[in-house]
Design a protein around this nucleic acid. Structure first.
Lengths: 223, 223, 223, 223
DNA sequence: AATGAATGAGAGTTCATTCAT
DNA sequence: TATGAATGAACTCTCATTCAT
């Protein structure tokens, strides 16, 4: 009868009155993904306001009614999309190496990952999309942002702190240093991409930027 | 004299047959600013699509018809707003000191200006507003962006090149270095503000960030 | 203070409180005609609804306020225009010869006048204009129509009746005969022009049509 | 099958993926007719510009959105209406008898049909409606006019030519003669009706007019 | 469970009319 | 007196959402 926010769809499965093998309304994950795939295309191309539910309907290949079974309204559909994208990115970021390799190798790996991520055309489009609704749907926006641009620096901060403890680095403010390194890795990449002043850079340019970032960072903070 | 939507300023002036002392339709700068002030609030709060002409009408305290005397449509109203904001910011950026003072003082002045600007709540709102229409109104967006975030690094690049010539700095890529310094000056400020993760920083925090940026930059590039 | 319908403007002149030589508001016939001239162009080109008071303002070279001094509203402006046009056409129709010339000459003169009139591009445009408002402003429409297409046949009817009395014609229903002759004179001219299927005919074609009409009419009704 | 606005019928049909028994959007002929019925009332009463989509909405008993599913815009709605009316009238005109009956009987049948048609209140309203948009939508207007007032005379012309060949009539210009006869049949009917000077005539009056037309015509052109 | 035809509030825009200058 | 900047109701059209099938 009533649809529910995707937030708690999973927990509801067990309450479904249908027999085994029969999926309840709004509980088919494949259909859900099909909807989100369509929504992603349309939202990315047109922004939140510019995207019409009709377009999403066509892009997803499902009927209007079906979308409203899975998501109560456009806003929750968008939230569901962001939530899914977040998970994907989170996995990527989560599996980063902050471990036993030499410091400069770790910085390089992190830098390349971060540089690639923040200048990726897809990511940039998503960021713009989210920035467009940041005032109207702050929790949705934060859900997305806390794992991407922000998460990176925070994870790095913890890593840098351990290196300070080990005497490899000398710095007073690990969070600031982490942010500095992160921003150095996207110097000339992130802002121009966000502002549409340039296209997505290739790996060579990212590497050049990251290597320069490491050089600057190490001259400033190496023990 | 008054600023005008560059789209139709010429044609509008030429068809105004009235003598001096009487303002033609759409030529009262005070009313024009009144409209833009209202539009700024509503656009900043809701984005381009989210802002309704009705809301702008109320916020500006003028009737709908009046807005359409001054601006042909919503898009030109937005363009007019961006144009005005650009001029304000351009003046600020244009008067930067890149001169005969000691290098570190110049870097400090530039850093403070850039840090303040890029973390200013007003600027950030404008940036988000513009990022929301970057695909639909690229020329309008560029008009705005080319003077703010971008301009800074390019001006700094030229200055750094002269310091390299004078033997004060050693660096191969002045543009990259300029971008690095600019990004160091907004580390922990710009992105968090843009993403609404923090409020506008006070001068003390900006200064702390800029001083750290100078330290890092000089360790990396001082002769 | 208040403007009045042009219907009674004349009678009001004597009530004007101004001294001699000074025209009261809405009482300058030259300005009135200037307005109507502009209105005629715009109404003819765009129809009643399609004509905007702004366009009329420009075409007439007067201000919006002035028009509203002379005419209370758009409808009365249109009525004023129709009223003036009516007078012009009425004069033309009124001076027609229904007199002492031979019957066939009179029929020819009448036929040419009627044929020219009913196929004239200007008249046709006016007719269409009036047909467009015939339901909303019936009195206005009738004011115009009663002097043009209708008047002709009625005047002719009286003339034909005298010829019957003189024994030149044999017919029972002079009004029907008059209408028949009038319609014969515009066969292939009026309806195609009204329906935009053909352009205004030249005099040669009108004459050919009128001569054929006379031939048919005389064979049918000559004594 | 159902009639359709010829503008988009093809594209609409091709994108309807549903199986038989389910009607696609804008493909329910009953609803389409319901909309056109409402539109007819409002357009006939107010003209094209005077008719508001809101009024049509109410008159048709459907929502605004529904109208826009069936017709892309007001103009196409009007075109759809004219198209439907044309078909109705065309059938009536098409089935006219131009055959093996005696000449005077054929003329009588034709005359009655034409006289009835051109003085019919419905037809007259439609004509006025169409005359109101003849400058803005010429193709739509012609679509309608070419089958009604015009078609009649042209069909008659061909018939008269055969009677000339058979020696029953003597005339040089069959098209002119056809137009003359047609106009004789509506003398005192068409123009007064079009100009709202009289109400729709009854059959007795039409017959009287047609019989007189035949008498005049035969005296003029009978062999 | 899934569909998509139908809804109607609200969008951007126009324009007849008013009134301070 | 004449002006035209300002008004706001009404316009055409869109689209998130609902619900009968």
């Amino acid at each position: 009868m009533q649809a529910m926010s995707e937030m708690n769809a999973v927990s509801r499965i067990s309450q479904s009155p249908q027999g085994p093998g029969r999926l309840g309304a709004g509980e088919n994950p494949a259909k859900r993904d099909q909807i989100l795939d369509g929504a992603k295309k349309v939202f990315a191309a047109n922004g939140f306001d510019g995207a019409s539910m009709n377009d999403i309907t066509k892009a997803a290949g499902v009927s209007k009614g079906t979308i409203y079974v899975y998501f109560n309204n456009k806003e929750e559909l968008f939230a569901g999309l962001i939530h899914r994208e977040r998970e994907r990115i989170f996995d990527a970021v989560g599996s980063i190496l902050v471990d036993t390799k030499p410091l400069q190798d770790v910085l390089f790996d992190f830098g390349m990952m971060f540089g690639r991520h923040m200048s990726n055309a897809d990511t940039v489009r998503s960021l713009r999309m989210v920035l467009g609704v940041i005032d109207d749907m702050p929790e949705v926006a934060n859900m997305f942002l806390n794992c991407g641009p922000t998460k990176g620096a925070h994870q790095l901060k913890d890593y840098l702190a351990t290196r300070v403890d080990k005497g490899e680095l000398v710095l007073e403010d690990p969070l600031l240093a982490a942010r500095q390194f992160a921003d150095l890795c996207t110097a000339g990449l992130f802002k121009p991409c966000l502002f549409n002043e340039r296209v997505q850079p290739d790996d060579a340019e990212i590497e050049k930027t990251v290597r320069s970032a490491i050089r600057v960072f190490m001259k400033a903070y190496a023990a």
